[in-house]
Design a protein around this nucleic acid. Sequence first.
DNA 1: CAAACAACCTTTTTT
DNA 2: AGGTTGTTTG
Length: 662
Amino acid sequence: MNAPPSPRAATAAAALDSLNEAQRAAVEHDEGPLLVIAGAGSGKTRTLTHRVARLVAAGIPPAAILLLTFTRKAAQEMIQRAIRLLDRRCERVSGGTFHSFAHLMLRQHGGAIGLPPDFAILDRSDAEDLIGLIRKEAEKRPAHGRLLPRKQTLADLFSRAVNKGRPLEETVLEEHAHFADRMDALKAIFAEYARRKREHHFVDYDDLLVLFRRLLAEVPEVRRRISGAYRHILVDEYQDTNRIQADILDLLADAHRNLMVVGDDSQSVYAFRGADFRNILEFPRRFPGTRVIRLEENYRSTQPILDLTNLVIARAREKYAKRLFTRRAGGAPPLLVEAEDENAQSRWVVDRIRELLAAGTAPGEIAVLFRAGYHSFDLEIELARAQIPFVKVGGFKFSESAHIKDALAHLRVLANPYDRLSWHRVLTLLERIGPKHAESIYRGIVNARSGVAGLLALPSRNDEIEKLKALFRALDPQAMSVADLGQEVIRYYLPILRRSFDDHPRRAKDLEQLLGIMERYRRLESFLADMALEPPTLGVEERLVAELEAKDRLVLSTVHSAKGLEWHSVFVIWALDGRFPSLRALADEEEMEEELRLMYVAMTRAREGLYLCYPCEVFDRTLGLVLNRPSRFIDRIPRSLLPKCRVDGQGRLRVVKEEESG
DNA sequence: CAAACAACCTTTTTT
DNA sequence: AGGTTGTTTG
């Protein structure tokens, strides 16, 4: 490879020196398949960004490099870092998520497999809404009269079947056998869901991947074009890909086999959405001649933390053998903290955080992690009481909140007048209009084959419909900017917001943020696609991103959302057997393995301080049991590695010397 | 008969 | 806090 002289060549060479041997080998790898097993904190991101910079420096056109990551943010950050390593050429590197890349390719080439050019993307809650409509109709048919699963469960079931590439029937029998007696109804709803997606030109998240795979597999000219255009493919978090994504990569790399995948099988935590960590275990078999490089030196955590995490992950059944080591000497051992109940746990965490802050730790260097979004509710109250500002990551997506979806629905019917789902939403917002009326109005619109004009032609039923008509008369997608359209919609929607939500002032602020985002777009269609695919951060989240970067706020996060991040001190709360691992995982060995990996991810986020907390004496109503053991993943660990303490009545810690019986 | 309202229940994780 | 279910209202 003959690198063109670069003003920063010296800097780049110096940066290369800072890598360890394994990292450098990965960065300098020439062509052909490469698998990098990157343990937690082993400099995975550094390795990827250095390799991107090196490929560009070696004269590969930046646009021919495809960097697939798990979130858009991760891709952008890596590209930014590559720019800092090399120069602005790295800006043109193609980066994104599997879903966004599939979307881009389908917009360009989807016609080849008969995909209509104006397809709209259904996000998860759109999909659930559509399934909900079908479910409601199915309920009325006497043959299906028995209780059907909730729409959420249905969406989950369908998605799993698709992502695992297996018939619905098998998936139901395996994962929800208690619905087996309603199999016919489930199949009928599934088929109807697929039919309506076609009818309304809808594509859901899973379809993006499935259709992209089909495009690559069935249209050789398109595959050759795409594969030829992206000659170097780099994939982050490969352990979290599912079967379809793995197939897509096989097809993309078909022409050149320049595929680098990076991941850690021990951190695979997305099986619930079809990810299969066997992809990473089997990668060398799928690509004979694969070079395998292991990154085992940990640059993040102190030795006592690493000793514990190594011991925990050693219990995993199936994995690439690896043992992380560090050169960082010293450090205090992690602490297992037992509190009487949830509130005692919260109060102790708040006290300890206060001490850390008083000792000079930046708030943004402290994180509290938990299994599920609602686990932090009590802590949030205590933090507010103590006036410690925090941001919460994970849990439910802001852009999926009702008021944002309401506003967007008005814009979506402009872009696609036959979007039944959005019409339904728009119409049922009106007073005295429920599902039945909405449905008959929608039919009128479709029959008139005139979209919005069809609505305008309807006889006025009441004032509400008059107002809606006035709105649509004022909207002209051809003549108005995206933000102006949004402005009109929000003006119209505010009264509805006020009567629908008690907390409307907060929600009104979100709508203003939404408007700010709209200003960045020229085409309504691309704004809507982005909102469904990679919702721009807004509201709380937008502030959150700025604040995370400013490192000035305590972070509360689900473990899933914490993946890839690190903090000086980490608290894992609710490390209680029955919560983490969750009770529902107990029956299934694979799910338990995933819970174990999730605990591993949580613990390996810590650089210096790690506190594993659990309340004992928690009564679980569904089981009628008292949960009082620490998570089985950290139970029965030598006290020397994980000292155990109990919080007393004054919130002080008392060391527990002996392992109590029971 | 359809819509609005009130009372429950049940809550994993997310592109 | 949300969705689902059952009940009341228009």
